[in-house]
Design a protein around this nucleic acid. Structure first.
Lengths: 181, 181
DNA sequence: GGACCCATGTAAATAGTTACATGATTGC
DNA sequence: GCAATCATGTAACTATTTACATGGGTCC
């Protein structure tokens, strides 16, 4: 479960509320990990239950009260352990490839449409990655080393999306050559 | 739910038992979709329940009896509809990037180890993709068009894995330059 | 006798999404 | 008064994995 550890990761930098973290997942790490607020709140509960975080109730007057989560020593240790745990190949699930694999049943034009639509989605993704949206938060990096790590994570998804886009375009060319579509 | 539609896809080619399909997921499309037998059996039940497939009990003497699943007209229609449904960007979950993003807490050597380990996993993946394992089944393609589609699906995961590998190597170089590790 | 393949399932747990639900405060 | 942001939660559902469970047949 990486969400748990991503939360510990954030809490190792500072103390946050569930609401803060929700925004961090949208704006900070949304390009490589997403989570909904309902999952975040439940997972934070779990962290407290496991003694990996503790909660502080903060009374606010200008806005609704909130719960600030702090990392415990046990939480810091759990995070450290997990950070060096070797990569386990995740189960693969690539919906578009399922569609393409069984596309023999489709008209040529439908296959082309499918691929063109995918290309558009990838373009949108790339534009989002290249916008300031994610980079804006990189200024919070504590030094060059962290900044490097953050840029490289973003570069990963950019590279992969570019590769997918090149793959679609090549596939479209090949398909048109083959079918005359 | 793509598993449901991947099953319909297979059943549109021929009739299969759950056991057959389990093997198809390992050997035929395992590089872009995985499923366990427990999920396959339950999903097949679901297909029958929805009227998208029907089941034929086949008595065998040299081996245990089996249940052959056949696509119904409704199943064929459901498949056709799904095949042209536009791509929806799936939620992103990339565990290694979570580790790297929060790797500021780690020693230089631990970061290097993490990346080198990832590179090894990617190499293994690539070797698997390039082996005969998946291509062996491509001979069942009904014509050039289908063969093209199948090769392109495999090429997708190969390209992405190659990109990831190049990304790791570039990241390792950059990290070593920066830290002297 | 034992390993291995064939064949099918259930149960429990984990992970994640979507929908439902509430309420305060700020700024227009 | 209304929209937007802040803030937290629960319930139901979907998807997936892992573990448990069984039993026949073949081949060495």
């Amino acid at each position: 479960m990486s969400l748990k550890h991503a939360l510990l990761g954030f809490l190792s930098m500072d103390s946050f509320s569930g609401y803060d973290l929700k925004h961090y997942f949208e704006e900070q790490v949304g390009f490589f990990w997403t989570a909904t607020h309902s999952q975040i709140y439940r997972t934070l509960d779990g962290l407290v239950g496991e003694g990996l975080a503790r909660v502080e109730r903060v009374v606010q007057h200008d806005r609704p009260n909130k719960k600030l989560y702090h990392l415990t020593d046990a939480g810091q240790e759990e995070l450290q352990d997990w950070l060096v745990s070797p990569y386990a190949v995740p189960p693969v699930h690539h919906t578009l490839l399922v569609q393409l694999f069984f596309a023999q049943e489709l008209e040529d034009s439908e296959v082309v449409e499918l691929l063109e639509d995918y290309a558009e989605r990838l373009q949108e993704q790339l534009e989002l990655y290249r916008s300031e949206a994610f980079r804006a938060h990189f200024e919070k990096a504590r030094g060059k080393r962290e900044l490097f790590l953050w840029y490289r994570t973003l570069d990963n998804v950019v590279s992969v999306a570019e590769t997918e886009l090149a793959w679609v375009q090549q596939t479209l060319r090949g398909f048109r050559d083959l079918t005359g579509a």
